[in-house]
């Protein structure tokens, strides 16, 4: 099968452009506003959308995303609405939509039910921050059946064997975790990020890899694209939206993507 996400990442790179992967939480601050915000990101320079599922115990997330997803839950976000959001976003834009979710909501919905409904809504696949390949047997099978992308994480501390597994089993791209830590803006994106990408390249000749965690400026986005297949930005978008709504979010999207396209 051909991954829609992979096709977009490779096409942009082949054309000499970079890739910007943008995160936004579904249901933040409300379902309708999150759909509007996501579409605006896709229309203004985001190449792949990472739609977050709000979850009560987000251990990989820093305070900005924690607060946004808590707001979504307080405002009544329900898991099923993820599929409504994906459907409405993909009806308006061609951007691949990956859903970023902690694993328990998927288990409770039923892995197969989740895959089926995501595929039916036009979703591209899942990014699973707390599901390692070792525990993913059922997901591997079901994501094949529904032709969904599955993005596993590679980190500075991953052994070469584990990195190879992440590369072999990921589809779409491998999420290169830039630094040992949680989401949130950092003044400098670690030298570690280059090392992680080098480890991915060593483990696989074909896997795409995008760098995430801590990226918030246009310089960082450009720099990361110089040695990887894309930059993943989350907290900076959420913060922009929190500070100035869709207008500020669009401005941030334009700012971060402007130097990627020639």
């Amino acid at each position: 099968m051909i991954s829609q996400t992979s096709a977009v990442l490779k096409a942009n790179k082949a054309a000499g452009n970079g890739n910007l992967i943008g995160y936004f939480p579904a249901g933040y601050p409300t379902l309708d506003e999150s759909i509007e915000a996501s579409i605006a990101m896709c229309q203004n320079g985001v190449d792949v959308l990472e739609l977050g599922v709000p979850y009560s115990d987000p251990v990989m997330d820093g305070i900005v995303i924690q607060e946004a997803t808590m707001t979504a839950l307080e405002n009544g976000f329900k898991l099923k609405q993820t599929f409504d959001a994906v459907r409405e976003i993909t009806a308006k834009v061609d951007t691949p939509v990956l859903v970023m979710t902690y694993w328990n909501p998927v288990i409770q919905y039923g892995i197969e039910n989740f895959a089926r409904d995501l595929a039916a809504a036009g979703g591209a696949g899942l990014i699973t921050p707390d599901l390692i390949p070792d525990e993913a047997a059922e997901w591997l099978e079901i994501s094949d059946k529904y032709e969904l992308d599955r993005v596993f994480l590679g980190t500075p501390s991953s052994s070469p064997e584990r990195m190879k597994t992440a590369c072999d089993l990921s589809r779409g791209f491998v999420y290169a975790v830039s630094t040992m830590g949680i989401t949130g803006a950092r003044a400098e994106v670690d030298a570690n990020a280059r090392k992680v990408v080098a480890k991915v390249r060593e483990a696989s000749e074909t896997a795409n890899t995008a760098v995430g965690i801590g990226i918030s400026t246009a310089d960082q986005v450009v720099e990361v694209n110089s040695y990887s297949d894309g930059a993943i930005v989350g907290s900076a978008f959420v913060r922009a939206y929190a500070d100035g709504g869709v207008e500020a979010l669009v401005a941030k999207t334009v700012e971060l993507s402007a130097r990627l396209k020639n």
């Binding site: 251990v59 990989m60 694993w103 921050p129 707390d130 599901l131 390692i132 070792d134 525990e135 596993f152 994480l153 590679g154 980190t155 500075p156 501390s157 991953s158 052994s159 584990r162 992440a166 975790v177 040992m180 830590g181």
Partner: peptide
């Protein structure tokens, strides 16, 4: 049981 944690913690 098992290990449902981010990859970042597996080495530790």
């Amino acid at each position: 049981g098992g290990r449902f944690v981010p990859e970042s913690l597996i080495a530790a």
